[in-house]
Design a protein around this nucleic acid. Structure first.
Lengths: 303, 303
DNA sequence: ACGCCCATGAAGCGTTGCTTCACGCTCAAT
DNA sequence: ATTGAGCGTGAAGCAACGCTTCATGGGCGT
């Protein structure tokens, strides 16, 4: 393969008409240029320059080669420009993986701010289950994923770096006409007699309920298993029972229910930012990373 | 400037989907490929490949860069192909400088054979005076020039390499009704009483005449100075005198004159092939060089 | 005739890029 | 569960390459 640096030298020499001028332009000594061009001529098997008293002139082969060199150099510049655009966040794609509840709470803010701050970047959001999120992260389909865990079961995936974003406290949902509906705060021990709405029995919130009730000294009576938090709220609203939920899941509650804070003894869900720990990360990923940290902090302070 | 060899590596890796496969394809060890790609990533400031358990996959930046790489490689191949075409005499131009008398004698054969042998090469012929030929040769306008000289004034130009092509003996031109017209051969001593047609008095043939007559013991009487050999023949044909000429100049003589050979004591013109002694010569020049040597040899043996 | 500009050469030094050898990991077959 | 094949990666070392420095020679303009 022809050496492109030599070709660049040739093009400069042909343009300037002199080896010395080309050397100066490219920051070399004339000797280096002369040596490289000689090698290029040997490689080419034919002379590329006519040596004249005053500078040099390309031969036919030299002119042809210089023409190709210019094209190659242009293309290399374009490649560098593309890299610079990707690095400068004026181009590129960031794929973000999220789970449904955080999607509805945090994402509107994330998306709108991202659009404003990086109008040239493309943002792909995929919302799916926890385990698929990890998979997407591992095979590079998404650059960043939002995950969650609870204190008794911390997420730990090899080669995945985690940054806690926010604590998502567990709250109590009661019907608007519930005896506690006018309070802003309560504790588990107040709820010993309640019937409970949970999501699927294998859903983490069910375990939160189990543990909290056990800590408060009673066993919850499960009245209904809902498929999502909308359904859970609906059941609560008609007085079928009360429910626990991460606060982000009830940012905009059903008007017929009330949301009460619980003590810190009730486990909180933790939301984490996850990415593969590559030694080098795509600029767009770094940008999204920072943006998520910012949005989460603001969300935490003024919910 | 991005290193094209690294880009080639990247393209191969992206194509094959594996560093090892790319390494094998390009004759490197996997380790070398891995090291080079890592450097390229550092240069790019962002990851180019997603390392997976089974091979690798390009990131967005990697795909972009690989695309540019493919263009660059194509262009380099085209450049090499062009050089090969020039070297393989399937393309290119050869400029030949000649002087008028050899042009008419040797050139038809040269041109027709060149056309036949190298149909893809372009042939430029420039016919001009001796000193301008040297100039054209020195500044590269022509790659090969045909020159001539006489024994007493050998051509010698610095940095110009000379190859004798043929000896062009001096012949005698007489009118068809001249007393020697029926002979094929004569000597200068037979011509002591003649009147002479010469070309310009500073023309070399005038000096040939001077020297030959002096050697034969007489001084020529100049009857006319002609501008070219056609004019000289015309003057001879009407009996104004006899003339000397290089044989190649009267290949197709005027029907009203006769051409006689002279002894070897009359100086012969020497025709030479001249080229700049570059350490590397264009393939088309080498081809033309050889062709001229061949044509000259044949011309010499069966004129 | 002088100085200036240009291309070029030999020698030497620093960098680079490769190979070799070894390791850790994942997947699939036994 | 174990083994083996395939893949990427790392440290060390060696050879080649490309540059600089210093010096030479030729042609041009003042």
């Amino acid at each position: 393969m022809l050496d492109v640096r030599r070709l660049a030298l040739l093009a400069a020499v042909v343009d300037t008409g002199s080896m010395t001028a080309a050397a100066e332009q490219l920051g070399y000594t004339p000797s280096a240029v002369s040596q490289q061009l000689r090698r290029l001529e040997v490689e080419a098997g034919q002379p590329l320059l006519h040596r004249q008293a005053r500078g040099v002139r390309p031969t036919e082969a030299g002119a042809v080669l210089a023409g190709h060199a210019r094209h190659v150099l242009r293309r290399l510049s374009a490649a560098e420009a593309d890299l610079a655009e990707l690095a400068g966040l004026r181009r590129g794609t960031i794929a973000l993986g999220v789970f449904p509840t955080v999607a509805s709470a945090l994402l509107p803010q994330v998306v709108s701010r991202f659009r404003r701050q990086y109008p040239d970047l493309r943002l792909d959001v995929r919302s799916t289950r926890f385990d698929e999120l990890v998979e997407l992260l591992e095979n590079g389909t998404v650059g960043i994923a939002l995950l969650w865990d609870y204190a008794w079961n911390r997420v730990d995936v090899p080669d995945i770096s985690l940054t806690p974003l926010l604590d998502d406290p567990t709250v109590l949902i009661v019907a608007a006409d519930h005896r506690l509906a006018r309070k802003r705060f309560t504790t588990m021990s107040e709820l010993a007699g309640e019937e409970w709405i949970v999501r699927a029995h294998d859903h983490p919130v069910a375990e939160v309920l189990e543990r909290s009730c056990r800590a408060a000294g009673f066993t919850p009576k499960i009245a209904f298993e809902a498929n999502d938090y909308q359904e859970a709220q609906a059941m609560v609203s008609v007085g079928l029972g009360v429910a626990l939920a991460p606060r982000t899941a009830v940012r905009n509650p059903n008007p017929d229910v009330r949301v009460l804070a619980l003590g810190t003894d009730v486990p909180a869900r933790r939301v984490l930012l996850a990415h593969r720990q590559d030694r080098l990360r795509a600029p767009a990923e770094l940008a999204m990373h920072q943006l998520l940290v910012d949005v989460a902090r603001e969300y935490q302070t003024k919910p």
